[in-house]
Design a protein around this nucleic acid. Sequence first.
DNA 1: AATCCACAGGAAGCCCGGGAAC
DNA 2: GTTCCCGGGCTTCCTGTGGATT
Length: 400
Amino acid sequence: MRHSYSPKILPHREKEIEELARILVSAIKGETPSNVFVYGKTGTGKTAVITHVGRALVRKVGGKIFSGQNAEQHHLGKTNPVFFIYMNCEMIDTQYRLLSKLAEYLGQSVPLTGWPTDKVYEMFFSALDDSEKLVIVVLDEIDKLLRKGSDDILYSLTRINSDLKKAKVSVIGISNDLNFIDFLDPRVRSSLGEEEIIFAPYDALQLIDILNQRVSEAFAEGSLEEDVIPLCAAFAAQEHGDARRALDLLRMAAELAERENSLRVRTKHVKISKEKIETDRVVEVIKTLPTQSKLVLYSVLFLEKYGMTNITTGETYNTYRELARKSSIDILTQRRVSDLISELDMLGILNSAVISKGRYGRSKEIKLATPHVYLKKILDDDARLSRIANYVPPMQHRLG
DNA sequence: AATCCACAGGAAGCCCGGGAAC
DNA sequence: GTTCCCGGGCTTCCTGTGGATT
């Protein structure tokens, strides 16, 4: 049931598999496949489809598969070998890291840092071109790459073929943000987008099929209550058809049922799991917030706790200053705190909306979107905030 | 209709840490 | 090691504004 498991059958992705296979099949004929751009939201099976097709190709013609720390070798066939390289740009997010990783996969050793980038490129290039082969580079979350400005590597990679004598390179770029393509250098865009495959979100019925297929491998007959799978599917369908989410739900529900010694997984387990997944996410976000943001949250929490409604930025800021002083934390400007409030809003931890109170100015109206008890417990875990855990605000605050 | 509050939120620039280049 | 550059967090300064009140 875990994401790392990749099933042999991918329901409702036949069309995409077919299309990708059509593009990559030219490798069997000894030609260089077009570059491909793949778009789709998280949990729509992009990575699964691509590795599936890539593996099949390498099995057929021989070559190697690289992914993370793993390498898998297959015996050579009649045509040139295929090196299938999967990389996630979330970790490998600079030119240097990308190139050194590529060079490493091709058998070179490059230090983690220290060399000029063009030297690493040289290493990579010579290792690449020392024998006849096709290298398919999969760049997952490719949008992370140019977020940090350096998309020249994409440029070099997509037109490297004209400089190569023996080897050939195809690039498969994966993104879950379609707008990303607008920010791309036009030359890269046209070359990367020679072929495009779009992964539409799964609908509830398709999610049911996916779950059923996994369930047949992972669960004993009759261990699920009848409505369990449809419910998981329905919840996940609300989340832009994320199959990963559906599987998480089912897995957590099963774990819960097991812990309760329940004979079957019931819909209530699914419902509880859904709550838990959501709160876990919020807890994680709040825990990892910078102290200043936590302090801002704390301020809103205080104001609400003492019965204030329609909390404004100014009121929040005054409380914030008081709390920051009490806990010897640097006091930021109201301008900055205003931005922090907006960020917390974006994260869904609180709600803020700009409203006008006529003669009494314009401000954000702020209220928490997270249960108080909860919030306080998490915030009090932060040692830097311990001094204000039992702080009682002065009278004027309580009057509202 | 004019006023004016209490901010929103843009622009420019400072500081600092980290990584690349030399 | 040193220098350079970059981005993020932050401050300073600023202009803009919806609508109750005058």
